[in-house]
């Protein structure tokens, strides 16, 4: 798994998308149960066919309102993470995608006004934990909406499954103690 970078500056090329990017665009239903290697080749291809081929690890997705609307499919943030996307900064997020991204360890940041801050292909500088987004070319900086502490903790743990692993280990010890 790619390292989750929350507190340091992430610098990456901006891939810009509009409003209402749905989970059907992020993870098309036709490939719902295909292996990840196949699924990641179709991420956002409907709206930008070159995206899955050309996106590079460390790149940043910038989008409009209601990013990730639709299904509860975790394959939506999983595809972005598998392609190496460092973080998604959007005007706003759909609720389930937002939770799923954090649960998987994909940094996300709601940031009203971000669509105006970048052109596609610009470089972005993002510090997710501080909710800071900057365009080094124009020198303009925006403050996003800070993630709540519980989400920061889950991201820093590397996702909710790491928390589950720890919980399960404690359960094992408790049972062994009783046994």
């Amino acid at each position: 798994m790619a390292e989750v970078r929350l507190r340091e500056v992430v610098r990456g090329r901006v891939w810009k998308f509009g409003d209402d990017i749905s989970t059907d665009l992020l993870a098309p239903g036709a490939y719902a149960v295909a292996p990840l290697e196949e699924r990641k080749r179709h991420v956002l291809e409907t709206v930008r066919p070159e995206f899955p081929r050309q996106v590079r690890p460390g790149d940043v997705v910038v989008a409009g309102r209601n990013f990730g609307c639709g299904s509860s499919r975790e394959t939506a943030p999983e595809g972005l993470r598998a392609l190496g996307v460092a973080c998604v900064v959007a005007e706003s997020f759909a609720r389930i995608f937002f939770r799923n991204a954090v649960a998987l360890g994909l940094p996300v940041l709601p940031c009203p006004g971000v669509s105006e801050l970048f052109e596609d292909g610009d470089e972005a500088e993002v510090v997710v934990a501080e909710a800071r987004v900057r365009n080094p070319l124009t020198g303009t900086e925006l403050r996003g909406q800070p993630l709540p502490p519980v989400m920061v903790e889950i991201l820093e743990a590397g996702g909710i499954l790491e928390r589950l692993r720890a919980w399960n280990a404690r359960r094992g010890q408790t049972n062994a103690g009783r046994g």
Binding site: G70, S71, S72, R73, E74, P77, I96, R99, N100, A103, L104, G159, I160, L161, R163, L164, W167, N168
Partner: peptide
């Protein structure tokens, strides 16, 4: 693990959709 879990509000239950990792956590703990 389905966004349309809000349907359960029809019978006054708080139903909501989550992903697979969160479900692993919820179903275990």
């Amino acid at each position: 693990t389905d966004s349309h879990s809000t349907t359960y509000g029809a019978v006054a239950a708080a139903g909501t959709g989550i992903g697979t990792s969160e479900m692993a956590y919820a179903a275990t703990t």
